[in-house]
Write a protein that binds this DNA or RNA. Sequence first.
DNA 1: GCCGAGGTTTCATAATATGAAACGTAATTT
DNA 2: AAATTACGTTTCATATTATGAAACCTCGGC
Lengths: 258, 258
Amino acid sequence: MAQTKPYPGTQAVLRAVSLLKVFTDQRPEWGLTELTQEVGLNKTTTFRLLTALESEGMITRNNQSDAYQLGPAIVMLGGRALRSNDLRSISRPELKALVASVGETASLELLTGHEMLILDEISGGHVMSGGQTIGTRWPAYATSTGKVMLASLDWDEVESILPQPLAAITPKTITSMDMLHRALDQVRVQGFAVVDEELEMGLRAVAAPLYDFDGDVAGVISLAGPTLRLTDQRLPAITELVLSAARRISVQLGAQPD
Amino acid sequence: MAQTKPYPGTQAVLRAVSLLKVFTDQRPEWGLTELTQEVGLNKTTTFRLLTALESEGMITRNNQSDAYQLGPAIVMLGGRALRSNDLRSISRPELKALVASVGETASLELLTGHEMLILDEISGGHVMSGGQTIGTRWPAYATSTGKVMLASLDWDEVESILPQPLAAITPKTITSMDMLHRALDQVRVQGFAVVDEELEMGLRAVAAPLYDFDGDVAGVISLAGPTLRLTDQRLPAITELVLSAARRISVQLGAQPD
DNA sequence: GCCGAGGTTTCATAATATGAAACGTAATTT
DNA sequence: AAATTACGTTTCATATTATGAAACCTCGGC
């Protein structure tokens, strides 16, 4: 499904990784036979790969149902990946400051494939234990952060990345490539992106790009909240806050302040 | 380091995973040659494995130094793994093992507001149908689990959370904020907390923290029983059991084994 | 303009991963 | 209770696939 580069001598590894990726939030547990069908491998091969992954803790078996699921080693590596990400540690204080002054939810995201990956999220509510959504992904074309990232690419690259047709997630979702093209142009001019109920009814978000030392977009931050609270009146001020937070982060990433 | 079972036909996968595990908090970035030496593989092999992992997003290259580091796919999988394994089902087998070896009551708890919420409880007696107390709450300042959770917070946060004055539940309850402050300091140093008749006369308990991938305290487990049976003699050994159970759970939550 | 230290590619070789089929074993049906 | 099915596991001969030595780039330092 996601063949990027066929490199020789790596079949087993690619297959093993594709097995891992089958475990989603919707379907976190699998039987061997199901997995075999899903990835289209021989049952023996699937079994062998799983056994290897299991011996390393990348896969565990729910000891009641003996179904396969992702294991502790994955969680451990995920934590390391997050902590070693300096983008995250640099951005975090700024995200916290944003949340403190606006009172909504701020996040740091990256484009992976055609989806936005949540690297960090500071919740505005009084819910402890953030991090529940870290690692989640959303379609790029229907998010504020996604629009920012897509706007940093050439249009033909955007076309090749996005799975078409664009599915309508809400009645307001942008579903025509033409409209998306124009929307991205606007993002480029403005320097930020807004999403208004395109991903979820009643949800608004503003996103601004983070630039690294050579002017590339290294990530995006956003502030999201209910339309009821992110009113038209407040939006300009909030946008300015998000933009200035993004600029401060960018400076720390080595970007030249315009 | 962690060779469990040498299963035939999985060399490449095992090698790939061992590569991933080399990326630690202490050393999150590696060059090809360094990696080669570290894992003891041929340079070509290492390169090929890394390329495969990179094509799947499991590894990225820091575009300034082109050093290898853990990639976004790992973050994504880590999030999924975390969300599919809840605290309770991970902890339960360890709680059961504790009860089996000590013979008292073990529990899993969380801080909610200023009280400890019992998420799970395995009864040591012959009382059938555990779970009677699940959902119950106890004041944090008078429980072993509560002390552990409070010790993970800043002192001013503790002050703002706790309703003052601290009510004396038994003659031994800590009722002065000063004494509590010192008690929490001790907990931080020790890495565990003990309650001795502060919640109920004749009741002792030992609690140890569970750490998640981020190093945050994700919950607490405890072992509680009558002072008559949890004697001074037995306490050190029991404490060690609780601590090691907590460590094993933490590993499954993605914590780094110290 | 040369040197050296990475990273990358080539290619012949055999070791390794592969899949068909057979085997256990537990759950479900008759 | 016997028979059937579904699922996980093991075996084994085969050639596909991973392997590593060596040659080859490419860049930064001298």
